[in-house]
């Protein structure tokens, strides 16, 4: 007859432990032990759940009290971090930033590493003043598209060729010039929705297209950013580097 008594005693002991856990009187170490047991002992977990439902009657003592108004935005910032424009530029640039822009090379010669090497070793020397700047604007792994940009210093025309364009057509792609040193981006215009696009760079901005600037494309509401600054995700960027 001792066995049923024993199990009865165990049951009472478990009921007590579950009740003490739900009441909250247990020290920290015991709380962790109880939680570990909840995870692997279904009968015990049911006891805890039972106490929680029963003692929830005491929750009426918690009279509603508005938290500070800033709290929700802090929670959102924790759960859904909005990356800054600078952070987006960094992540959108990818490996390509390090060799982002070649001065004096045509697109045709652009791809080979040999050209890059010769370029790095200084064979090419000073670039003629009126040739093209070429940049491939690459995105994150899941970027909506990649872009090839070619800027002709003579005509002041920036030629853009979307690579695998998948842009949402309810939105616009906006091209930005990001000056070196953290100054605010300057809009260079809206890209055409499909196909090869070209943006005429305003004359007053042309002197700023030089070493150290970054090109970036952001996804904006149709027609472009309403604020004059990038508001949407940066889907591609590339840094212009001279030799």
């Amino acid at each position: 007859m001792s066995k049923p008594e024993q199990s009865e005693g165990d049951r009472s002991r478990d009921q007590l432990l579950a009740g003490e856990y739900v009441l909250g009187v247990l020290p920290e170490a015991d709380r962790r032990k109880v939680e570990a047991r909840i995870g692997k002992d279904r009968a015990f977990a049911a006891m805890v759940a039972n106490w929680q439902e029963n003692l929830a009657g005491f929750d009426t003592d918690y009279e509603e009290q508005a938290p500070p108004s800033r709290t929700y935005s802090r929670i959102e910032a924790r759960l859904f971090p909005a990356r800054t424009f600078q952070q987006q530029l960094l992540s959108a640039g990818g490996w390509w930033n390090s060799l982002a822009l070649w001065r004096g090379l045509a697109i045709a010669s652009f791809a080979t590493l040999a050209t890059y090497a010769s370029f790095q070793s200084g064979w090419i020397g000073e670039a003629p003043p009126s040739q093209a700047l070429v940049a491939e604007l690459s995105g994150d792994n899941n970027a909506a598209l990649g872009l090839m940009a070619r800027y002709d210093t003579g005509s002041g025309r920036l030629q853009l060729m979307p690579v695998a364009a998948k842009a949402d057509d309810a939105r616009s792609l906006q091209l930005w010039l990001v000056p070196d040193g953290g100054a605010a981006p300057v809009s260079l215009g809206i890209l055409p929705q499909t196909g090869e696009g070209a943006v005429d760079i305003p004359a007053d901005l042309r002197p700023r297209l030089r070493d150290g600037v970054t090109f970036a494309v952001s996804l904006e509401p149709f027609g472009g950013s309403p604020t004059g600054q990038p508001t949407g995700p940066v889907i591609a960027s590339g840094k212009a580097q001279g030799i």
Binding site: D61, E64, Q65, P67, P68, T71
Partner: peptide, 22 residues
């Protein structure tokens, strides 16, 4: 949140800590 904030506040008895807890 008003109900849950009240619970945090009754237990922690400090508004700053209760806000962090919330």
């Amino acid at each position: 949140s008003p109900k849950l904030f009240s619970a945090c506040l009754r237990i922690l008895k400090d508004r700053g800590e209760a806000e962090d807890a919330l």
